[in-house]
Simulated assay, not measured.
Amino acid sequence: MTVATAGSEPAVPPVDETSGEESFWDERASSGHEVVASAAGDLIVRDAREFGAYARTGGWAFALKVARSVRPGGQAAGETPKVSAKGFAELAGCSPERVMRFYKAWDMAADDGVVPQFEALAPGEDVELPDADVWLSYYSSRNSATSVRGTAITAAAEAEGIRPTKALEVAENPTALRAAILADPSTAEAARAALLDRLKEDPALQAELARDVVRTDGLKKAVATESRAADRIGYVRQIAENGQIKTPAGQTLDAPVELRAEAERHLSLLDELDDDEEAGEWVTEAYDTVKGLVVQAVEADPELRVQERRTKFYSSLQKATKVFEELTFDDADDIYEDDMVHRLEELQQAIATCITALRKAAPER
């Protein structure tokens, strides 16, 4: 469409010269609306038409004024009647930065062949302008869009298929973002998902979030609960997918066919839960059921039962030995207490009894 500009003929002819406008005002009058004056009517019609032009073209109407009035980079003042961006801004009563944002939007669109190049435009010249929807693909109303941070936000917005101006607006108003997160569950969910994606590539943020969690009692408890649930699901998944069980004593063995089938059944139930369903009870039931079956499998096999007891006994013996070896007796004179001696004597008797029992169980040579 063609946009009327300063210096051209008035956008709206006088009412008495345009029968369409006369019928417009006649219709308004006949419908009961008061017509104040013919001069006021002219101004209103002009405003309405300019509004309609802007509604169809958006910021292109203003960008055109800049593009045909501001000289391109590299052109000297004597080569063109156009003015500098600074001079245009002074005439417009705004900042040069604002003028340049319109200038850059037109420049990018010209590179894409959407609008004519600056050199092809003369002051006051009108051209057909793109639709308003196209404008936001080229224009950014924020200086931050050209910064390193703004460039990253713009690229991320484009990757998500949204307008960069929307993402930049949110980034420049974190208080508004906080309010939306606090008030709206769907916004909070979107923020949570984005934060999780960011955590994968940001070790510093991972550390900060971890510190926040351990400092917040409610979060710390929730993390512990979820961690325990994840361990239990992992226990069931290990049996279902790998066909291996871990006994109470810590042995890793091949799972019986029946046990593996039961683990697969519980795992399929867990996988079918919707994201908004509470999985706690299902996880507990799956874990308790499978663990109970593991105990039954161990008890049903005499050889395995003996091996399990042996493994458990030896594990406890190693732990006790390590603890006792860490004791030091260099300062025993200073720390003496009767109770200490009494406990050590009881321990000595228990060890002697244990040794005797083990020797009796030893095979004859």
Rank of each mutant, 00 (worst) to 15 (best):
D212F: 11
T175L: 10
E158W: 05
A188H: 04
E201K: 13
A132V: 09
T146W: 12
S147M: 12
R211C: 06
T154M: 03
L195C: 13
A152M: 03
A207G: 06
T187M: 11
E172P: 04
E158Q: 11
T165C: 11
K200I: 10
S137R: 09
A145D: 04
G150K: 06
G161F: 02
S137F: 01
D184N: 15
A207N: 10
A180H: 04
P174W: 03
D184R: 12
R192Q: 15
A159N: 05
A152E: 02
R163W: 12
D202E: 13
R178L: 06
A179F: 08
A191E: 02
V213Y: 00
L199H: 01
S141A: 15
L177T: 03
Y138I: 02
A191H: 03
A171E: 01
A122K: 15
W135V: 02
T165V: 14
L136G: 10
A194M: 08
A176P: 00
A152V: 02
E169T: 15
G150N: 08
A188K: 09
A145W: 04
T187Q: 13
V213M: 01
K166V: 12
T175Y: 06
V170W: 05
E128K: 08
L205D: 10
A132S: 13
A157G: 03
A204T: 13
S186K: 11
A155C: 00
G150C: 08
S137Y: 03
D126P: 11
P185A: 05
W135C: 03
S137T: 13
V214Q: 06
L168W: 06
A156S: 04
Y139F: 09
T154W: 03
V170Y: 02
T151R: 10
W135E: 09
P123C: 05
T216M: 08
S141L: 01
S147V: 09
Y138K: 00
T146V: 14
D184E: 14
R149V: 13
K166D: 10
V134R: 14
P203Q: 12
E189T: 12
D133T: 13
T146K: 12
D212C: 12
R198Q: 09
E172Q: 15
A167Q: 04
T146G: 08
S186N: 11
D202M: 07
N173Q: 09
A167P: 03
G124P: 07
L182M: 13
Q206D: 08
D202H: 10
P174V: 06
E172I: 07
E189H: 14
I181M: 04
A190T: 05
A193W: 08
T165G: 15
A188C: 11
A155H: 01
E158A: 07
V148S: 09
L209R: 10
P185T: 03
Y138F: 07
A180D: 10
R178Y: 06
A159L: 10
A176V: 08
A183N: 05
L209A: 14
Q206T: 13
A159T: 07
E160R: 14
K166M: 08
E189N: 15
A159R: 13
E158T: 10
E160I: 10
R178G: 04
A180T: 06
S144L: 12
Y138D: 00
A204G: 11
D126K: 12
G161T: 05
Q206P: 05
A190I: 02
D126E: 15
A180L: 12
Y138P: 01
A152P: 00
A156R: 00
R163P: 06
P123Y: 02
D202S: 14
L205R: 11
R198I: 04
S141C: 05
A157Q: 02
L195W: 07
